[in-house]
Simulated scan of single mutants.
Amino acid sequence: MTRPKIYIDGQSGTTGLEIRQRLADRSDIDLLIIPEDRRHEEAARKQMFEEADLAFLCLPDEAAREAVQLAEGTGVRLIDASTAHRTAWTYGFPELDRNQEERIRQADKVANPGCHATGFIAAVAPLSRSGLLDPETVLTAFSLTGYTGGGKKMIAAYETGKTPQMEAPKAYGLDLNHKHLPEMM
């Protein structure tokens, strides 16, 4: 049996680097590495999708949507780490219900769940499924986050020019229009 070939589209971003590091020393897969100077070339990326059995999309939302179009027809299975497809694709949370793990195994496109949404869903879904929580109940979710999910620019700002204001938590996403809200609902 041949080893699965895995490509990371967005391999130089924070998520892509983490996945690449975790997969780099594995002998049971072939990690496809796109040359740094070609990572923005559509033809080079398309070739990687064609060669890969599985690809991780570690891109901003709009770029992830574009990557799906680029991968169309290649037969590659996709796991998207962005929020672009979390409510449209198979949700990559095997503990969600007794059939979710099999759905993930069979899916060609899997949306990787968000960390804050996963914590919320892990607590709320069983209560809702069991009837202990009315689906119409209004809930509030509170969580704290760091800065690494904000991308390279935010990481650089925090690591090279941190201001006193950056030291304290601040509220955001209070307008009920946060990008994780559809996933949590």
Rank of each mutant, 00 (worst) to 15 (best):
P4K: 15
K5I: 08
I6D: 08
D9K: 08
G10R: 06
L17P: 00
I19T: 02
R22C: 03
A24R: 14
A24Y: 05
D25S: 05
R26T: 03
S27R: 14
D37I: 07
E42A: 13
K46E: 11
M48P: 00
L54A: 11
L54M: 12
A55Y: 02
P60R: 02
D61H: 04
E62R: 11
A63S: 15
A63W: 07
A63Y: 08
R65I: 09
L70G: 12
G75H: 06
T83D: 12
A84H: 05
R86K: 15
R86F: 00
A88D: 15
T90K: 05
F93H: 10
P94D: 09
E95I: 07
L96Y: 12
L96D: 03
R103M: 08
I104S: 09
R105T: 05
Q106Y: 03
V110E: 05
T118A: 12
F120V: 01
V124Y: 04
S128M: 14
R129D: 12
G131A: 06
D134G: 07
P135V: 05
F142K: 13
G149C: 02
G151D: 07
K153Q: 13
M154G: 00
I155C: 08
A157K: 11
T160M: 01
G161W: 08
G161P: 08
P164V: 03
E167D: 11
D175G: 07
D175V: 01
N177R: 14
H178K: 02
E183G: 06
M185K: 11
